[in-house]
Amino acid sequence: MEDQSNVKQPSLWLCLSIVLFLIISFLLQLIVKGEPDVHMTLFFASVFASAMLIIFNKTKFDLIEEGIIHGCKIATISMMILMFIGVMIPAWIAAGTIPTLIYYGLKLISPSIFLVTAALTCAIATLCTGTSWGTAATFGVALMGIGGGLGISPGMTAAAVICGAIFGDKMSPISDTVNLSAGTCEVNIFDNIKSVATATIPGFILTIIVFIFLDLKFNSGEIHSQAVDEMLAVLSSNFNLTPIHAIISLVPMILVLILALKKVNALATIVISAIVAMFIAIILQKYQLIDMMSYMNYGFKIDTGNFDVDKLLNRGGLQSMMWTVSIGYLGLSYGGILEKTG
């Protein structure tokens, strides 16, 4: 390993050129392509940084390689967690865990405290699925329809959905952003959540209080939403959601919460939950082992005939996480080069 005290420090202009190349590349990509698909941007930024350091700073390639390895080492545990989250999500869906949350979450929404229950429902859904975007695109769509039927402003309903979804994402041990930030900062994932909670929980409590006062303006009416009724019917026809089965299907989620409170290793927690969910899916929901292996690798697949339900349930899988895993390795490799070369 290279002695850091003997590493020749790059000049200020060289450091600025390397960082500016990355910034300009990002901006050009967003302007030209309009999407944050930055894998090759990070790749070329790493190549540019390496070339500039070798040519103008006489940096040895061994040191650059050491930086890449250092970055990948930081990323490894977080990337493994992300991959196993991909395995766990379709197991939860097949076991009925996520369908149960959706089904009973929608049934429990009260018109008298609609904004509060909407925010809490989205928070719980995201906490258990790790995806704020998925919650907003599914629960959010259904809740917008309900809110419109109750005469509630679309802006208020959207605020409730977004607040709940973002809160759940920040608190979820299976959120990709939570795992990436913990891995990048080299801290335990549960310590990361605990730190974020000091600001996020008080903020969410204040938000709920505001929604309570807003709900007082819309304390009448009944929920009549064809979209919600269709979702409930589709879920009950494709999954066994009787109360006893619903309780059993929540075991994988409860396991995650218990093991998280006991500070069990996040990797082990996710694997245990995934395996338990797989057996529940096989025993209670009557899936075959070969089907579960396919779902856990490539993602859960079902055609219910309802677009909103399919959009929420057709997801997950080990392979679905490779986009995030690869960007994590590329980004941290780039950071490792900058760190080790000074």
Rank of each mutant, 00 (worst) to 15 (best):
T138F: 08
A45L: 01
S50P: 06
K170M: 09
K170Y: 07
S326V: 06
F61P: 00
D308T: 13
G34Y: 00
V87Y: 01
F21R: 09
I89Q: 13
S320H: 03
Y103P: 11
G147T: 03
I31P: 02
D215P: 13
Y103K: 11
G105R: 08
M171G: 03
I77C: 05
I24L: 13
E339P: 00
I152T: 03
F300Y: 15
L12C: 10
W92D: 12
I124K: 04
E35N: 12
L180C: 12
Y287K: 13
I68P: 07
T269E: 07
N306A: 10
V32G: 04
F204A: 07
I81W: 02
M156L: 14
T341I: 03
G305D: 09
I270W: 01
L27T: 13
V7R: 13
I55V: 14
L180A: 14
V161F: 00
Q319C: 04
G145I: 05
D62G: 10
N306E: 10
G71T: 02
L259E: 08
M83S: 15
L250E: 09
T121Y: 12
E230I: 13
K58F: 03
D303Y: 04
L259D: 06
I93F: 06
Y334E: 08
T198A: 08
D169Y: 00
I152N: 03
L28N: 13
D3C: 02
T135E: 03
L257F: 10
S249C: 11
G34N: 07
I174D: 03
A94G: 05
S273C: 04
T324L: 02
A260M: 15
I193D: 02
I282P: 01
L250T: 07
L216Y: 10
L106C: 12
N192V: 00
I327T: 11
I244G: 05
M80F: 13
F84Q: 05
M144E: 04
I23S: 10
D229L: 09
M144D: 02
G168K: 06
T100R: 04
A45W: 01
I85H: 08
T242I: 13
E186W: 00
I248N: 06
D310G: 11
C128L: 11
S5M: 00
V251E: 09
L284G: 14
I85M: 11
C128I: 05
L235T: 02
L14T: 09
L255S: 09
S25D: 11
P202A: 09
A136W: 00
I54L: 07
K73T: 15
I248Q: 05
I283F: 08
L22E: 12
A281H: 01
A142V: 15
Y295N: 09
L22S: 15
H70F: 11
L106W: 12
M293T: 08
K8I: 14
Y334C: 09
K217E: 15
T59P: 03
L259Y: 11
A266I: 10
V116G: 06
G96Y: 03
G342I: 00
F239K: 14
I174F: 01
V178N: 15
T200N: 13
W133L: 15
N6W: 04
S237P: 12
H39I: 05
L216R: 15
A158L: 12
E186T: 07
I258T: 11
G316Y: 03
G145A: 06
